[in-house]
Amino acid sequence: MTIEFRDVHASYNADIPILKGVSFTVEDGEFVAFVGTNGAGKSTTMRLVNGLLKPESGEVLVDGVPTTQLKTSELARRVGFLFQNPDNQICCNTVREELLFSFRALGALDAEAERRVDEIIAEFAFNPDDDPFLLNRGTRQLLALASTIVVAPPVIVLDEPTTGLDFRECVKVMDIIRHLHENGTTVIMVCHDMEVVADFAERVIVMSDGCVVDQGPTFEVLRNRHTLKAANLVPPQIVDISLGLNMMRPDLEGTLVATANTLNEMELAIATAVGKPEAASSVPTYAPTAPGAEDALVEGGAR
């Protein structure tokens, strides 16, 4: 399912424009991250995707249909939305009821829905009778994510999904999102954590002052110091190190230090460049497949 913005202008108050002509396309099955400082217009962009906000001018197309022509419930079937604060989303007395509520809201509560809820409860290892309001912050966030994905929307929008989570919870949430993406779900994520962005996103869209200032493959954008500086962003430290190393060592031109497209590759390239390839294995990242990550997760009790 494709999401397309065509010269979108939007605001909450006519006197203060928030989005000033935003255009981009998110293709079916992509994992796109939106980065930018607070007030850049990222969350407003997300609200336009699922129709919570309608554009003042321009068009937001979900699978080719303008959001202005779709009811919110129709959009909710197509676009799942995970808010930053799970407490706004949770409204039922048990975990099971909360998951079933997602189907009830869409008018799709049937035997198949019950089966799907049981499946999700098993997958997330929830206790179905737990009171959601008594769960810890990380588990509430997981429950909010579960109740978003339980109805299997083809597009999922995540507004800062890792805010307030510790490393272990963050890995768990992002692991589930990665799994969804691998199974064909289009993922659009707003995130301030550039390490998470570098680790998971295939493409990055940089926003500043209500405009898209850069977009492209993740590492191509993260290496663009000029644009990131203009948007008041700092790339992940490892990207910064690779850029510095590349400047100091012309002999590394064209090697993985300059061209790596994953954090794992970059770690290995930097460690090799400084003559310590074995050092790469001790650097954990969010990706469970990264060298050292398994150890870190076992130590942290996530596995």
Partner: peptide, 16 residues
């Protein structure tokens, strides 16, 4: 407002 928006995003039709 935030709670109502969250539920609207889940498909609850407050305005319909």
């Amino acid at each position: 407002k935030g709670i109502m928006e969250s539920q609207t995003a889940r498909g609850v039709e407050f305005d319909q």
